[in-house]
Structures are given as structure tokens and as C-alpha cells.
């Protein structure tokens, strides 16, 4: 074997190269201008900054338009008023009924999603064989991937009629049906995040309990669950946030009657459903009604932001534990 730099001396063929590779590299280098090395980091940084601009855009948009809204309506009325009736003359803008509608539906959703999601998480993390897990996990993923418009259709045309057979006084538009369906929608969120939390509890802790003769259930409920509680709470808070922000299911099946109280059998209106109702209608640009959707959107944004930050704060605390 003979290696000579730059000279290709394999006898049977003719060769194109007459220079050594290093000489070719040096020649090419002189011809090239390496501008991409300097300009690319700048361009890439700009793309990353788009996300910051998006946040600023959301804040700015909501603030400016909300400010316009508060030229017509007092902040006091907005926060403390008990009537939301924007289409009357003059309009009444107390946001409480919308918040009440949102909370009722979110409450129902949580009542559905937490027990089922948690049970599924416990089953998947502690009891299920690999085979079962391979079936259930994709099912949860599919449930999470179904568009909300489909859930809305399902709530209105399937869940509501069935519920009406059980509760005859149930109206076509009600809080119960969309609440249940939103609950189904957020099961995957709670189940998979809670499963992660349960799964990150060290096996040694379980073995400690099992070696003492405790049953799997006892170990799960008394040892694993308490150890994973922060992660589970975080998943529930995230689920609440998604339920509050859910729009299409409540627009389709919840109705458009802003009201206070605890009734879940009649028509309600959530913050999100109100935004949709106005956007679909012909409220002209610049009217108080037009600006009111930004004020409601701002309130919605604050609610979900608090929930998301809370969830992050809780789950960050867990990570420091073990």
C-alpha cells in the first residue's frame, strides 16, 4: 500500500486530480466568501424572536382593544356586574354570567376527567401489561387528536339526546352535555401527564412497600400516589386550563344564554362562546360589542395564563424533590 499525498498512483486508471487535496481546499477557500456563517445566526435568532413577538402581539392587541372597550363601559361594571346583555340598548356588560357559564362547564368536565383520567393513569402505570399499554396509549393519543369541532358535533347530536332521555327537563342547549364531552376531551391530558408523574416515582420506593407484603393497590394509594401528587395536580390544572379555553364544543352544544346560578340543564354561555357568537354576527367594527370580545378574550387569556403558570410552578417543584 502506497500513500503519497496528492499523487494518485493506482496504475490502471487515469486520474483527474493533479493537486493534493489540501491544495484544492486552499484554492477553493480563496474563491469562497463565507457570509452564511455570519448571517445565519442572525436570521435564526429572528425566527426565534417571532415567538416573543407573538406574545407581545397578543398582549398588545388585547390591551389596545380592551382599552377602547373601557371607554364605553366602566371597569367596575365589567367586573362586578351581574348581567351580560350586550344586544340591548344600552348594553349591559357584567362579565360574571360568562364566567359562571365557563366555570359550570369546566366543573363538569373536571368531574368527568379527573376520576377517569387518574384511574387510567394508575392502571397504565402500575397494573397494565405491556400489551394492554400498547393498545390504550394510541387510543388516548387518538382521543387527544380529534378536532374539537368533531367533539362539538358529538355532544349536540349524540350526547344531548341520550341525556334528554335520562333527564327529561334537559334543554337542547345545556351545560351538562358539553361539560361531559370536554371532560372526555381532556382525559388524555390528565392521564398521560399523571402517568408520567407516577412513572417517575423511583421503583425502589415501590419495592420497599411490596417487600413488606403490601398489595399493589396499597402501595399505589399509600406510597406512589402521594409521591406523585404534585405532577398529578399539575396535570389537572392544565386540564382545567384547556377546558376554560375550549371554544367549539360549548359554541355548538352549550347555547348562548349568559346567566348566573348553578343550573346545568339549561342554555348557558361561556366566555369563548360569546366571542364566537359576536364574531359570527354582524357587529360592526368599532362598536362597543366589537370591542367587548377583546375584553372577554383578555379575561380568558388571564385565566388560562394563571392556570398554565400554576401548572408549571407545581411541576417544577416536583423535579427538585428527587
Amino acid at each position: 500500500m502506497l500513500w503519497m499525498k496528492g499523487v494518485f498512483n493506482m496504475s490502471s486508471q487515469k486520474y483527474a486530480a493533479t493537486l493534493s487535496v489540501q491544495e484544492m481546499i486552499a484554492k477553493k477557500k480563496r474563491q469562497r466568501k463565507n457570509w452564511s456563517e455570519k448571517i445565519m445566526p442572525v436570521i435564526l435568532q429572528l425566527t426565534a424572536i417571532i415567538s416573543v413577538l407573538t406574545t407581545l402581539g397578543i398582549l398588545f392587541t388585547l390591551l389596545v382593544e380592551t382599552f377602547a372597550f373601557f371607554k364605553d363601559v366602566s371597569l367596575k361594571e365589567f367586573i362586578t356586574g351581574n348581567t351580560w346583555y350586550p344586544f340591548s340598548e344600552p348594553g349591559q356588560y357584567g362579565i360574571m354570567p360568562l364566567i359562571s357559564g365557563t366555570l359550570r362547564i369546566t366543573g363538569i368536565a373536571i368531574l368527568v376527567a379527573v376520576p377517569i383520567g387518574l384511574a387510567a393513569a394508575i392502571y397504565l402505570s402500575e397494573f397494565a401489561s405491556d400489551k394492554v399499554r400498547r393498545v390504550i396509549k394510541p387510543v388516548l393519543e387518538v382521543l387527544a387528536g380529534i378536532p374539537t369541532i368533531v367533539y362539538g358535533f358529538f355532544a349536540l347530536t349524540f350526547v344531548t339526546p341520550i341525556l334528554q332521555k335520562i333527564i327529561p327537563s334537559l334543554e337542547i342547549f345545556n351545560a351538562l352535555s358539553p361539560g361531559i364531552v370536554i371532560g372526555i376531551m381532556i382525559i388524555p391530558t390528565i392521564a398521560s401527564l399523571s402517568e408520567d408523574a407516577l412513572g417517575s416515582v423511583p421503583i425502589a420506593i415501590r419495592e420497599g412497600g411490596l417487600a413488606l407484603g403490601a398489595t399493589k393497590l396499597e402501595v399505589t394509594l399509600k406510597v406512589v400516589l402521594p409521591a406523585a401528587v404534585s405532577g398529578i395536580v399539575a396535570s389537572i390544572v392544565l386540564g382545567i386550563s384547556r377546558a376554560i379555553g375550549e371554544t367549539m364544543i360549548v359554541s355548538i352544544a352549550g347555547g348562548s344564554t349568559p346567566n348566573l346560578g348553578l343550573d346545568i340543564t339549561g342554555s348557558v354561555q361561556t366566555m369563548t362562546a360569546y366571542i364566537v357568537q359576536v364574531a359570527q354576527g354582524d357587529a360592526g367594527y368599532g362598536t362597543t360589542i366589537y370591542y367587548s370580545i377583546y375584553a372577554v378574550g383578555f379575561a380568558l387569556f388571564i385565566f388560562t395564563l394563571i392556570m398554565n403558570l400554576l401548572a408549571q410552578w407545581i411541576s417544577n417543584r416536583v423535579k427538585e424533590d428527587y
Binding site: 494518485f8 486520474y15 483527474a16 486530480a17 487535496v21 484544492m24 481546499i25 477553493k28 474563491q31 469562497r32
Partner: peptide, 14 residues
């Protein structure tokens, strides 16, 4: 060789 600008297929083969 490629990153340093050598693109000629024949030279690369060699």
C-alpha cells in the same frame, strides 16, 4: 472534501 468546496464527481471518486 465536499464541505471544503470540492464538488467534482471524478475527483471525489478518486
Amino acid at each position: 472534501p465536499r464541505i471544503h468546496g470540492i464538488k467534482d464527481k471524478k475527483i471525489l471518486d478518486e
